[in-house]
Simulated assay, not measured.
Amino acid sequence: MTLNTLKARLAQPGLICAPGIFDGISARIADAMGFDALYMTGYGTVASHLGLPDAGLATYSDMVNRVATFADICRTPIIADGDTGYGGLLNVDHAVRGYEKAGAAAIQIEDQEFPKKCGHTPGRRVIPMEDMVRKIKVAVEARESSDFLIIARTDARTTLGLDEALRRGEAFARAGADIIFVESPESEEEMARICATIDKPLIANLVEGGRTPILPRATLEELGYRIAIFPGSGFLAAGTALQAIYRTILEEGSTAGHEESLYPFDAFSRLMGFERVWDFDKRNAA
């Protein structure tokens, strides 16, 4: 994957749909399906890697290592959640350099106070707009290539209202962010207003059960969104499937008769790259 792939795709028409990836299995499955981009979800990655809530508990080291793992697995460009930049301006500089070196195509930085919280949960507070503008300027200066995209997210809608969120989105665009992410609008009308106000590529964050309505692709395109991310879809689906098969094992003591609900073992082994191992063993048999 080259960095300019996502930037070049943004220059073309049509909505970019990016499913959430959160571990090596989800990354391999999504990467094989032909998406234009993938989204490394902070919520899912923290839950999968640490078994903890996405509440500022994961460190920069935790997350940049996940970025590197996913980028090594995937050919598809990865948009990576960078939380608040993990601290002050120097931390933002370090995070941007680290994410770019690790192989992400874009880093998302938000204006929440530390410790941050998932964008569709209550209790979020934001830093002063001027502080976030400085973070964005530092992020733009820190990257080595302009093909590595800076995504500026504001969580102001929930606590300070849509007008303040729009004011911040416009300021972040002027500061040099490549993509603007106004988190958790609460109606299609609010989404339309966001798209009509901010003259930059925009992200729609579609979280099943969250604050923002789940709209069809055609509607999102008509409104003016360029990227739709689906951060929770994968781990919510996986949670349902795991719970179902684990319940079967608990109640029946067997998976007999449930094979059709499971990914075929041979196909899964090939997905994980075992063919290379098998070929290597053949070539190097004693």
Rank of each mutant, 00 (worst) to 15 (best):
D62H: 03
T76M: 01
K137C: 11
G34N: 13
F70M: 14
S61H: 10
K137R: 15
I21F: 04
V92E: 13
P53D: 07
A105H: 05
D83L: 05
K101S: 13
I109S: 10
M129N: 11
L57R: 05
I107P: 12
H94V: 06
A58G: 03
T59V: 10
D31F: 05
G85D: 10
C74P: 12
R66D: 13
Y43W: 15
K116G: 05
E110T: 04
R124M: 11
D83S: 08
I25L: 15
K101W: 08
L50A: 01
A68M: 12
A139H: 05
G88F: 03
G88C: 03
P77Y: 05
L57Q: 12
A18M: 03
L90I: 13
G119I: 02
A102M: 07
Y43Q: 07
C17R: 13
D31K: 02
R66M: 15
V96Y: 01
T41Q: 05
C118D: 07
L90M: 14
R66S: 15
T121L: 15
I73N: 02
S26F: 04
L50G: 07
T45Q: 04
A58M: 08
A104I: 02
L90P: 14
F114H: 01
E130P: 05
V126S: 11
P115M: 12
T59G: 11
A58D: 10
G119T: 02
V138Q: 01
Y39C: 00
R97Q: 15
V138D: 00
H94T: 11
Y60G: 04
V138M: 12
D54S: 07
G119F: 09
P53Q: 02
G88V: 05
D23L: 00
A105N: 07
A27F: 10
T76C: 06
G51N: 01
